[in-house]
């Protein structure tokens, strides 16, 4: 009995982690390059909706995933344009996009499905007939690729330079803004993919279904000290905590306090109680060439 409980618990925790992990890895790319992306919440939502619509009409989950990822990239493009090219405030842009995403998804949901809250049912990953969850494998692969690309490739080195000391990078002939664009677009793609998972998992779209996961993803990134592996560990932590509350409803601790956990932890980490938590030095500051 205990064994079954453990495996089910473990798998559930992993499943719950997926929509935290993908946007969190995305956020890491964006912030390593020096751009704060709060719009992840909105991108998750848009990704989920696009996937739902795409799958609904084509009955093809690969098209659905493609829709999710592309919509994520497009929203990321808006954020890049506003934050990098126009150098407007990155926080405000992110918040605006989240509001926009909420509106756009509900608006078109009403038009397409006649309800601004719920879409119709779509097929999910079960149609692939795999004995395992493909998204979990996908996440592991993406995690590995993220780590390698950030720390082992030319792109990653230049991205990190753009986020830490854009002037130095510029002085060596690196196109800082191009690096930042790529970072943000990757964050859009990964968050869109996370949205796809949400849609498939629920087999439909519900308004506001991202439910704060984009913010938890940011929290995980901070707790993970802006390192993809650290972010992954933090996401797993949250995934397990949430799975725990679902399994053990009468644990004596009200669910709300478990819900608070990621946020309280982020505040503690940011305040420096668990070692230094410094973002890339140029994080949030638009780069303007001098002279």
């Amino acid at each position: 009995m205990d064994d079954i409980l453990n495996i089910a618990f473990f798998l559930q925790a992993l499943r719950i982690t997926i929509p935290y992990l993908l946007p969190s890895l995305g956020a890491t790319f964006s912030e390593k390059g020096g751009v704060i992306n709060i719009a992840l919440e909105g991108i998750l939502l848009v990704g989920a909706f696009s996937t739902t619509v795409g799958t609904f009409y084509t009955h093809n989950i690969f098209i659905g995933i493609l829709c999710g990822v592309i919509s994520g990239v497009l929203i990321g493009l808006i954020h890049s344009y506003v934050a990098i090219t126009f150098k407007a405030n990155q926080i405000v842009s992110g918040i605006a996009i989240n509001i926009l995403a909420l509106g756009i998804t509900k608006f078109f949901c009403k038009i397409i499905f006649n309800s601004s809250s719920n879409s119709e049912r779509i097929i999910g990953l079960e149609t692939l007939n795999l004995p395992f969850n493909p998204f979990i494998i996908l996440c592991v692969i993406i995690l590995a690729l993220s780590y390698i690309s950030i720390y082992k490739t030319k792109f990653g080195l230049r991205l990190r330079a753009a986020g830490e000391n854009p002037e130095a990078a510029d002085s060596l002939g690196i196109n800082v803004n191009k690096m930042r664009y790529i970072g943000v677009l990757i964050s859009g793609a990964l968050s869109g993919l996370g949205g796809s998972w949400l849609a498939f998992n629920q087999h439909s779209f519900t308004d506001g279904m991202s439910a704060g996961r984009g913010y938890i993803a940011l929290a995980a990134m901070i707790i993970g000290k802006w390192n993809p592996l650290g972010a992954a560990v933090a996401c797993l932590l949250f995934g397990f905590a949430e799975s725990f509350t679902l399994q053990f409803q009468e644990s004596g601790i009200p669910t709300q306090f478990i819900q608070m956990l990621p946020y309280v932890l982020t505040i503690i980490v940011l305040a420096g109680f668990i070692g230094k938590a410094t973002p890339p030095a140029a994080d949030g500051i638009p780069y303007e060439k001098k002279d």
């Binding site: 082992k152 230049r158 330079a161 830490e164 002037e167 130095a168 060596l172």
Partner: peptide
């Protein structure tokens, strides 16, 4: 100085002039 503090010495030296394989790995 135009140095990226959290990076290593060699990373700072090759930045912008990296030699890579076909996958972009340095």
């Amino acid at each position: 100085f135009m140095l990226v503090e959290p990076l290593t010495v060699s990373e700072n030296i090759i930045l912008g002039d990296e030699t890579t394989d076909k996958f972009g790995i340095i």
